[in-house]
Amino acid sequence: MSTSNLLLILLLVLVGFLAVGALGYVAYQHPALAPPLGVALAGAAVLVALVAIVVTVGHR
């Protein structure tokens, strides 16, 4: 993989952690929206799926 692909994956992971943290914070502050752990785990699952797509496309 090239350096640009690795930097793209790093950026995606960092933005993903930010999004998961924001989802967890919102769910914690407003428990009626969703259970905080479920929201954070769903966000993490989306992050893993996006990283897997980027890595798969990067190897072609």
Score class of each variant (00 low, 15 high):
residue 23 L to G: 01
residue 60 R to T: 06
residue 39 V to T: 14
residue 37 L to H: 02
residue 22 A to E: 07
residue 2 S to C: 06
residue 23 L to I: 11
residue 6 L to D: 02
residue 42 A to L: 15
residue 51 V to P: 02
residue 44 A to P: 04
residue 42 A to Y: 05
residue 57 V to S: 10
residue 59 H to L: 15
residue 29 Q to Y: 02
residue 17 F to L: 15
residue 60 R to D: 13
residue 59 H to Q: 14
residue 3 T to H: 08
residue 22 A to W: 07
residue 57 V to I: 14
residue 38 G to W: 06
residue 59 H to G: 09
residue 23 L to D: 02
residue 43 G to N: 04
residue 14 L to Q: 06
residue 30 H to T: 06
residue 36 P to C: 03
residue 8 L to Q: 03
residue 50 L to F: 06
residue 37 L to S: 11
residue 60 R to I: 10
residue 3 T to A: 11
residue 19 A to S: 10
residue 49 A to T: 14
residue 53 I to F: 11
residue 19 A to I: 14
residue 41 L to I: 13
residue 58 G to T: 04
residue 48 V to Q: 05
residue 36 P to W: 03
residue 28 Y to A: 12
residue 30 H to P: 00
residue 17 F to K: 10
residue 8 L to M: 07
residue 52 A to E: 01
residue 18 L to I: 13
residue 57 V to F: 10
residue 32 A to W: 05
residue 24 G to E: 05
residue 31 P to M: 05
residue 32 A to F: 04
residue 56 T to D: 08
residue 36 P to F: 04
residue 15 V to A: 15
residue 13 V to F: 01
residue 46 V to F: 12
residue 26 V to H: 04
residue 18 L to M: 13
residue 15 V to S: 10
residue 30 H to R: 14
residue 14 L to E: 07
residue 12 L to Y: 00
residue 14 L to Y: 07
residue 52 A to Q: 03
residue 30 H to I: 11
residue 52 A to S: 14
residue 5 N to E: 11
residue 33 L to V: 13
residue 31 P to E: 03
residue 9 I to N: 00
residue 7 L to Q: 14
residue 59 H to F: 12
residue 21 G to F: 10
residue 37 L to N: 11
residue 59 H to M: 12
residue 6 L to A: 11
residue 21 G to Y: 09
residue 1 M to N: 07
residue 34 A to I: 07
residue 54 V to A: 14
residue 1 M to Y: 05
residue 31 P to K: 04
residue 30 H to W: 08
residue 58 G to Q: 04
residue 14 L to I: 15
residue 49 A to M: 14
residue 34 A to N: 00
residue 10 L to H: 03
residue 45 A to Q: 12
residue 34 A to W: 02
residue 28 Y to F: 07
residue 58 G to N: 11
residue 11 L to H: 01
residue 6 L to F: 04
residue 13 V to E: 00
residue 19 A to G: 04
residue 26 V to P: 03
residue 45 A to V: 15
residue 56 T to C: 06
residue 56 T to R: 15
residue 34 A to F: 02
residue 30 H to E: 08
residue 56 T to Q: 08
residue 5 N to M: 13
residue 49 A to N: 03
residue 40 A to F: 03
residue 5 N to T: 12
residue 19 A to M: 13
residue 51 V to Y: 01
residue 12 L to V: 13
residue 28 Y to L: 11
residue 36 P to G: 02
residue 59 H to W: 13
residue 15 V to E: 12
residue 2 S to Q: 06
residue 33 L to S: 05
residue 29 Q to N: 11
residue 14 L to A: 15
residue 39 V to D: 01
residue 19 A to E: 09
residue 22 A to M: 12
residue 5 N to A: 06
residue 7 L to P: 00
residue 22 A to T: 08
residue 16 G to S: 15
residue 15 V to G: 08
residue 24 G to V: 07
residue 46 V to H: 04
residue 35 P to R: 12
residue 18 L to T: 12
residue 24 G to Y: 06
residue 21 G to D: 05
